[in-house]
Design a protein around this nucleic acid. Sequence first.
DNA 1: AACCGAAGCAACCGCCCACGA
DNA 2: ATCGTGGGCGGTTGCTTCGGT
Length: 352
Amino acid sequence: MGRSPCCDQDAGVKKGPWTPEEDKLLVDYIKENGHGSWRRLPKLAGLNRCGKSCRLRWTNYLRPDIKRGRFTDDEEKLIIHLHSILGNKWSSIATKLPGRTDNEIKNYWNTHLRKKLLGMGIDPVTHRPRTDLNLLAGIPNLLAAAASSQTTSCWDINALRLQADAAKYQLLQGLLRALAAPPAAAAPTGVDLMALLAATNGGGVDHQLLQGQGTTSRLLPSQYDGLLNLPALTTVPSSATATLPAAMSSFSGLLSSSGFAGDGLSSTELGHSASGGASGSSMTAAMAAPPLVAADDQCNAGTSTPCEDTTPASSPFEGLENLNLDDDFNSDTWKDLLEQMSWLNNPNEQHL
DNA sequence: AACCGAAGCAACCGCCCACGA
DNA sequence: ATCGTGGGCGGTTGCTTCGGT
């Protein structure tokens, strides 16, 4: 069956933005006669437009029951919830939001909500934790490996900072979330770093803290419920002797050896990378790392040699060098760190 | 003030399906 | 069962606006 010749290029049919005069012609005609056959409508209404264009203009902008203006928080939540069930069925979603059109919802999703979910570490298609972050489930292995090697330096921190640019910061967020999650427990769906850390701090959920940070408003009800069931961080067993910088060191090595190509790596492979640098046999040439921004010889990678000149004073990683997960997780240092890293909640803010 | 890139959004494109002949 | 048509839908484009330098 061929394409119907509705809006073909003949007859010099007008395209582009509608003028107020055209809008008036369309509205007046439909008020008087109803739209009837959209194909015949333009001629009857005195419009040099194709029927499809008229239908779109009417249904998306001229209909009297259209609701304009910002989406409310409730509408946002509803869209996200419905999208998790219906997928990109914008028209179906629109039927649940009176006054909103499918086109408007679709645009809002693509420009706002999609990015928002990505920033929260949620895959906007599956509404599950992003798969590129899932590979970080192997972080506990990294921690164990790092505990034995204890190699760390400000180079590693620096390398991580340099690599965590706007496009990659979520990966870092995933790392920290994985660090905070008990190894035996599955990463909670959609819970972002701040929520997780704040909620598990001290072994109990701190609702006030969550709400004060606006975290709850960014969570689906089911995600918040999941949050309530999280074990306390004090149950983290395997990281007893691992320092956070050591884990970051290993992870930065992994990043540079994998070029951020996350798919297809098992936690075992992650562990190998952690203990053996870039020697993981599964690494392919295509996954070769881009060079780090700073020259290797300017800073002794894999050692604890300080290199203050490349560490900015405002680095959010400052003060991590001596942090021990078990001993210090409830300390003021962590609280300070969380404050410093509040930018993780805002993808638009450029701190790195 | 001018320029430029990013973000937002209105509008279009083209595929698909339902329905009637 | 097949075909033609109308309409709906999701994806994409391109113009406008905004914000940073």
